[in-house]
Amino acid sequence: MNFNFLSPVSDIVLAHNELLPEQALGRKLKIHSKQQGVPDLEGVQLAIIGVLETRNDVNYIGEDFNLNEIRKSFYALFPGSWNTIIADLGDINKGESVEDTYFALKTTIAILVQKGVIPIILGGSQDLTYANYRAYDNIIPMVNVVNVDSKFDLGDSAKPIKNTSFVGKIILDQPFNLFNYSAIGYQTYFNSQEEIDLMEKLYFDAYRLGEVSNDITIVEPVMRDANIVSIDLRAVKSSEVSLKQKDSPNGLDGKEICAISRYAGISNKVTSLGIWEYKPSKDDEITAMLISQIIWYFIEGVNCRVSDDGDFKNENNYQKFITLIDDQDLIFYKSIKTGRWWIEIPFLNEMNNKLKRHTLLPCMHQDYIDACNNILPERWYKAFQKNCV
């Protein structure tokens, strides 16, 4: 397989790996090394890739970094009761230009996703999510992106792409493949009122930090509908991370970010995960370990996947509930296998055929209870409005 863009895992990490117990994760991975080359992907379900690119960070001052500490931490963990084969494919180095790095990442992700391998991308600046998104151009017609972040990152799309403005590029650049964008854990004081208004105007989902911390389960249906999940480490509060990583006294704690990652793993739709904005420092062990645990919980989630998306072809697999709000029938489905809920979005006949596959929107049991009490579920309303635009 042609993975020319990937450089092997460093000898320092491999030497460290040799000292680990036989049961450790690092001893069970297929690892890209100088000696062995890129491992065979036969049977591999998840692949770790590093991307050593930060030049489009608004605060870039020319520094380089590596991911050795993350790998050492991750390799030293013990796997759960997993049946997945995991590979570490090494790193994509900085290209001659940032566009070259984007191309390398886009191409690598596209190859992996088409082979049924879920890439876990560890990176520099979050603008690389744009390359992750573009990898899907020829794979699926419409893409849902979830951004776990304190900011929306819409930015000014008229200006060159940066790690604070990549979502604007995703929305406005052709081909237009974005169906929905959801922001989880945003903090209002980090976002201009114009951006907050734009999120509303575009009917995108946004969940404030307080909402998420109050009830972490609201993240589950959002993740169930996601193809790409992008985690900005700046969404994590300062007390949980190393010196250079500190961004805000408020944010998600370690337990919450790991729970969110597990929800992403459980989703049958999520086919790539990016963890961005890693900034190593001398006291780095704590951030490296947090990232390792985020990855661990994502893999744990993937191992707990239960296919219930196709259950609605057979009446014996689900229960159907209908409730009426303002002359509008709301139709809910509950999977008997998993207990998960969906709500039907009515489609207009003249609508773009690309959207046909989105007729069922994942939701919570609470949405059904609200509908019974004459409260229209907000995600249903936004999805319906989006289809009417």
Rank of each mutant, 00 (worst) to 15 (best):
L46Q: 10
L25I: 12
L243Y: 11
G168H: 11
H32N: 15
R27N: 11
K356D: 05
G37Q: 08
S33P: 04
T108H: 08
V146G: 03
K28P: 07
D309Y: 12
I109G: 00
I291A: 08
I12P: 03
E211Y: 05
F74K: 06
I216L: 14
N180G: 13
I92D: 06
N4F: 12
R340D: 05
V389G: 01
S10V: 14
S125V: 05
N387A: 00
E69M: 12
Y207M: 07
Q385G: 08
Y263W: 11
L202N: 14
L290P: 05
S230K: 02
G254S: 14
I70S: 00
V143A: 04
P221F: 10
F321D: 08
K246A: 09
L178R: 08
A15C: 08
K282Y: 12
V302G: 03
L122E: 07
S97F: 09
M364E: 14
D370P: 02
D308H: 15
P280E: 04
Y207V: 02
D327N: 13
V44Q: 03
I109M: 06
L105M: 06
P79R: 09
D284V: 02
D11C: 03
D283T: 11
P362L: 04
A259M: 08
N317H: 15
K244A: 12
I184L: 13
Q174C: 02
S238V: 05
Y130T: 03
F78I: 08
N250L: 10
F179S: 08
C388I: 01
E240L: 06
D225F: 13
F332I: 02
T338V: 08
E240V: 09
A288T: 04
A183V: 13
V306Y: 04
L355C: 02
F3L: 13
V9D: 06
I257P: 03
I184G: 02
Q36Y: 14
